[in-house]
């Protein structure tokens, strides 16, 4: 009489299956988390562009231009901006450089503009 082999998984097989499962889950988690990081980076970029644009808008109607810095709240996050003013040789126009950084001091957005002095 032939002895029937008991059909079951060996410990190795079970461990292997669990290992594959863990691998798949960790990969999907990694993709999702890097997704989230990218989205928050994009959001910061968009908001810092708003901040720089706002500063440039008011700069157009300011008579006395000088170096200035400040912060602006957009979407519940604080952004720090710096406005540099460089007089161009002809004395009739200025170059305006706006830099926006995050709270951690990371540079997020740069905007350059020119203004003809009245």
């Amino acid at each position: 009489m032939i002895k029937k082999k008991i059909a079951g998984f060996t410990l190795i097989e079970v461990l292997l299956a669990l290992g594959i499962l863990a691998l798949v889950m960790s990969v999907s988690l990694k993709i999702f988390s890097s997704n989230a990081i990218n989205v928050s980076k994009l959001e910061q970029k968009a908001m810092s562009r708003f901040v720089a644009d706002n500063i440039l808008s008011t700069t157009v109607y300011e008579d006395e231009l000088s170096f200035e810095r400040g912060s602006d709240l957009q979407g519940g996050m604080e952004y720090f901006w710096e406005r540099k003013v460089t007089f161009i040789e002809d004395g009739k126009s200025v170059q305006i450089d706006i830099t926006v950084s995050s709270q951690q001091g990371l540079e997020l957005y740069k905007l350059q503009g020119y203004k003809v002095l009245r």
Partner: peptide, 21 residues
């Protein structure tokens, strides 16, 4: 006007301030 200032209060996001020329 010279500048239009718009601030939007958005649910689950917060306040957005924009100044347009």
């Amino acid at each position: 006007p010279n500048i239009v200032e718009i601030s939007l209060n958005i649910n689950n996001f917060g306040l957005i301030n924009r100044r347009y020329l």
